[in-house]
Amino acid sequence: MRGFSLKYVIKRFISAVFTLWIALTINFLLPRCMGGDPAEYLASQSAMGSLEYAELMKQQFGLDKSIFEQYILYLKELLHGNLGVSYMNFPTPVKDIILEAIPWTLLIVITSILISFALAWFLGTLSALKKGSFFDNAVVGTSFYIQSIPYFWVGMLIVMAFGYYLEWFPMGHAQDAAVTGGFLAQAGDIAYHAFLPVLSMVIVSLAGRMIMMRSNILQVFSEDYIVLAQAKGLKKGKILTKYALRNALLPSFTGLMLSLGQAVGGAIATELVFSYPGIGLTTMNAILSHDYPLIQGCFAIIAVSVVTLNFLADLIYPLIDPRVSLS
């Protein structure tokens, strides 16, 4: 039962590729479903709405081709790792824009996810162990409240408190241009700037994850085999580490893999509030200005990374949960 069978891996791989293809196709279609033609928009912005100019832009962008031709071209270019050229920042390659933006988002997103998961596992388990105690009630109550707070509002309040009034941290940006010293100085500066955005993301995401973890543990405790183990006289600590924790981790483990993709979307508000560069705001602006290649590029990057993580999760899933077989 345990271990990988080649057939399973191949099956998973094919389905991952299939998912990716569908997602990329949707990525292609989605922006084209939006009202508003980017070429005409550009013309109205820069060339006094000239129709001839709009036609010219359409040719330049390949928008005069049939949608099927555009689709084939899009897939072909994508296979070569070419994400095309941004319309609004013509002729900048989409790849360059994304490569510039994504490290910042990854920095704050990954840092905050790791911190919040670690804290959630710890606090959630503790809370579940002490179920009904004052500590448990306090933690759960606070979590419920925090979980219901809008993401951006936390950001706004944090900027107001720590950036504007107390002036402990910068109100925005990812780094200070004046800091040109060695690696340590720059890293310190970047960490200093990332502190508030990460703090806001941790606060908001911690609550939900913690509650999840707590209820997972509680549910596992109610399982027959745990009750049995307890009846057999196994030590509490042993039950926790050997059975409960592992089984309770399962759902939150899949969550960890997938939250990355969604967190990128969630980063939009954070980046807006903290004037922080990143892929979230790039995506948002691309959508608002109908920059098809840039929208597709951003979505493609997210899609590829999520599908990959998902694939890995699928492979690891059976290893952790003995109840799910590999077949």
């Binding site: 949707i26 990525n27 969604q262 948002m284 959508i287 608002l288």
Partner: peptide, 25 residues
Amino acid sequence: EILMRIVDVFLVIPTLAFMIILAAF
């Protein structure tokens, strides 16, 4: 299998960005 494929496909598209597109559409 089909249902989960659909879910997976939509999960890889950031929901908020998806909503922004729909809102614009």
